[in-house]
């Protein structure tokens, strides 16, 4: 046992400064698409609309609309249309309504960041939020990110957020995956077992829009067809930082840097 205590001391503190300060550059990764800060142009943006596998990019005469809820972070848009799209922030995109994930930008104008709303300050969950996670058909990656939240680098417990096994103890239901038909009954049962008031968080673009797994007969294509969703966390999968950002938004806590977006550089 002494060996482990000694090792623990030697490793020292690994935990991110976020959300008390901007996250370390090391921790950034898995960015969603964003509109180029110089403003998109139509001839440049058109290949991206064609290349996007989920139809997250829509172009019309007025400008371009980017739906982060459909973006699966594949990076094809910023590869084919580098003057209109870039790798976006690694966290800070969570929203409390579906329209909050739509980024609209006129041609050659600077993109506007959608106004970030802090949920009504009920104060109810600000000190402690207990989360029940249900996997409704994810690709398995987001479960690794969720597991990291309780590990040393992210240590969610310091923020008063805990994963709980029993839905009876849960304030929030965090759903991942494109809502497969096989999981509908189990998800409803879990939701009904939770005491009110309760929150539903759709984590990952699959849970928001179905991602790539739509159009078939096996998925609903998004959780909000089955349960009322309170917070949307886009990403494929959302990084641990993005998940913390969404959980803080759900709990109604305010942090000075909550809205600060940090963009990573992707080697090109």
């Amino acid at each position: 046992m002494f060996r482990w205590i000694a090792r623990g001391l030697r490793v020292g503190r690994l935990t991110t400064r976020y959300p008390w300060a901007a996250a370390e550059a090391d921790a950034l990764g898995s960015p969603l698409a964003a509109i180029h800060p110089q403003g998109p142009t139509r001839p440049d943006a058109e290949p991206a609309e064609a290349a996007c596998p989920t139809g997250a990019i829509a172009i019309d005469d007025g400008g371009v609309t980017l739906d982060l809820g459909r973006c699966v972070a594949c990076g094809l848009c910023w590869a084919v249309s580098p003057k209109s799209f870039v790798a976006g922030p690694a966290y800070g995109a969570a929203a409390d309504r579906r329209e909050g994930l739509l980024v609209r930008c006129a041609w050659q104008a600077r993109p506007e960041t959608p106004a970030r709303r802090v949920r009504k300050p009920s104060g109810f969950w600000r000190r402690s939020l207990h989360v029940r996670h249900v996997d409704a058909g994810s690709d398995g990656a987001i479960e690794l990110e969720l597991a990291q939240l309780t590990a040393p680098h992210y240590d969610l417990h310091r923020l008063g957020v805990f994963f709980t096994a029993s839905p009876r103890h849960a304030d929030a239901l965090l759903v991942t995956g494109p809502m497969t038909h096989g999981m509908i009954a189990a998800l409803r049962t879990t939701f009904e077992a939770m005491p009110s008031p309760k929150l539903v968080i759709a984590a990952g673009s699959d849970a928001i829009s179905g991602g790539l797994w739509v159009g078939g007969e096996h998925t609903v294509g998004g959780v909000d067809d089955v349960l009322p969703v309170d917070v949307y966390i886009p990403g494929s999968p959302p990084s641990p930082l993005a998940l913390i950002d969404g959980l803080l938004l759900a709990s109604g806590r305010r942090f000075p840097l909550l809205a600060a977006a940090t963009t990573m550089e992707v080697t090109s």
């Binding site: 490793v11 690994l14 090391d26 921790a27 950034l28 990764g29 898995s30 960015p31 972070a73 594949c74 990076g75 790798a87 990656a141 690794l144 990110e145 597991a147 990291q148 590990a151 040393p152 680098h153 494929s236 999968p237 990084s239 990573m264 992707v266 080697t267």
Partner: peptide, 22 residues
């Protein structure tokens, strides 16, 4: 988990993505 995170961060610096996608 810390070793896993370290490895994923190395991957994220190479590819931009924590699961080495793209």
């Amino acid at each position: 988990h810390a070793l896993q995170e370290w490895t994923q961060r190395i991957g994220a610096r190479l590819t931009g993505h924590r699961f080495l996608r793209g």
